[in-house]
Design a protein around this nucleic acid. Sequence first.
RNA 1: GGUCCCGUAGCUCAACUGGAUAGAGCAUCUGCCUUCUAAGCAGACGGUUUCGCGUUCGAGUCGCGACGGGAUCACCA
Length: 603
Amino acid sequence: MNIRFEAELKNAVAAALQQLFNQSVRPESVVFQETKREFEGDVTLVVFPYAKPAGMAPEGCGNMLGEALLREKHLIARFNVVKGFLNLVIAPEFWWRYYRHLAHDIRTLFDPATNPFLSPPQKLMVEYSSPNTNKPLHLGHIRNNLLGYSVAAVLKAAGNDVVKVNLVNDRGIHICKSMLAWKKFGHGETPASTGLKGDHLVGKYYVIYDKKFKEQVEALVQDGVGKEEAEKQAPLTLEIQDMLRAWEAGDPETLALWKTMNGWVYDGFAVTYKNLGVDFDKMYYESETYLLGKKLVDEGLEKGVFFRKEDGSVWVDLTDVGLDQKVVLRADGTSVYITQDLGTAQLRFDEFAALSRLVYVVGNEQDYHFKVLKEIFRKMGRPWADGIYHLSYGMVDLPSGKMKSREGTVVDADDLIHEIVEEAEMATKALGKIDDFDNEEARQLYHDLGLGALKYFILKVDPKKRMLFNPAESIDLNGNTGPFIQYTYARIRSVLRKGATLQLNASEETMDYTMSAAERSLVKLLYTYPQVIADAANALSPSLVAAHVYDLAKAFNHFYHDHVIVDDQSPAISAFRLKLAGMVAETLKEGTRLLGINVPERM
RNA sequence: GGUCCCGUAGCUCAACUGGAUAGAGCAUCUGCCUUCUAAGCAGACGGUUUCGCGUUCGAGUCGCGACGGGAUCACCA
């Protein structure tokens, strides 16, 4: 007998439709929805689509279907019809059977092999983070990193083989700006000499470059030079171009400086990544990949996908698919951004055989770019072109609007992490529940809680949507938040510790007992978990996991409020409730793990 | 201007391929800690889903239009 009812119930509906109304529908096409809270039932069948061809009123149709399904005695206990909605009450024995199944080993709930909703496993790559090495990470990067990490975790939980990669933008004119400014105005400063985090030190010189450059332009404009011309003539413009040329020519002194300063940045990033809890299986550096792609340009020319203009530049014409003409190689033969991306995509599909999907976690400001990238590969006849997927997430706005570095409204990643952890510390100390923790334990807890709050806050929002972050109000620790879920976990662990003193054993679980509504709803939420994982993997949306984990925590607290779990007067019921609570805890832990959130034993 | 995305309670967000009386949290107000963690629970208040027309048995969801917001249209990355 199947441990899940979906397939059986769908078959039963299809059979009943055939028998009652001579309608043939495929069982897979039958869909149930969760019954609304105000009606009795577990699942609901919308009968409108079947009533019409049957030439019946929806109510009558619903009643006839209900009667027919009632014959599945072991599955359906009773039903009711409201308008065109057939609400089915799943038999209590079913929930008991499912509970026992999970109680035997809760890990099966998280095992892709036993999840019937998943599509076949694939080899996937997720690219995320992809920072520039000229300034520290900010709030926008935080959303990117948290999303990329979580999406990869969800895809893995859905049974896929996932490679996490990071493509570091470590070269180019913008990198040279920090280098040049440091060289000219840095007086040999280092992270060690200043106590500054490496990425912040380099970012400081990026800002200095910009400032000095503007001063030079302004001076020229005062002398009557036009603005555009002034920008071209500015001494820094000439110097920076020299530096880029020197870098590309392999000038030892320039390369040495580049390595040193990038090293500082990587040390800084490593700290931020560690704090965020994100990691990568493979790093790509643009300094190593920026020359790739030129071969593809040649190939495209041969195939007639690209064409060369008189000045020597190479273009692709995408007007037939509603896009424009785009440059893929400059007149001087050097690469543009998309040339590199063509190269790295090809490289990855070459390196990882059987890679069926390459997911780019990149902001929606690059929607157009990725349309072009994908379309070029289509035109070049790459069979994997459709596997290129741009996970386009919305920008993070501040109450004042978009973050603007020039206006100093950028929310720095390290600052934000520091503040939220500090806030978690204050809230925890105010409650005074962990006074016996040593320093290290306490520090770890504050970190987990602060990051739990931050991660949940960001990941609960649908990736596609832009979101608003208000630094002044910061992040709540109550209500629909990470710490709420962490709290629920810690609360369960606490009950389990108490329960352990009772020395119950599982055989005392009873079947005579009728589950309360709250208990049944917990079992049902566990039952739904595999479906949620499948949905989240399909949609590449951790927010679905976040929502479910929240529902589960909420339902547990409701249950907790009006049930006594550990009661030495009724060992059988205690055993059942402890087991159930334990399963909820494990599911909270697993779900939050997919969001990159740690749950504490105590808080 | 062309193309694309978005508009849901005062605020931040939900609502699976169109389904029932659009749900949570925050904020405001009420109750509940000498019993397993009150970062909790229960309740109240709060909506013409920006507006209009259309398709449908049924529209926050689909189509058209208006209004409002954003992104993008570089031999930048």
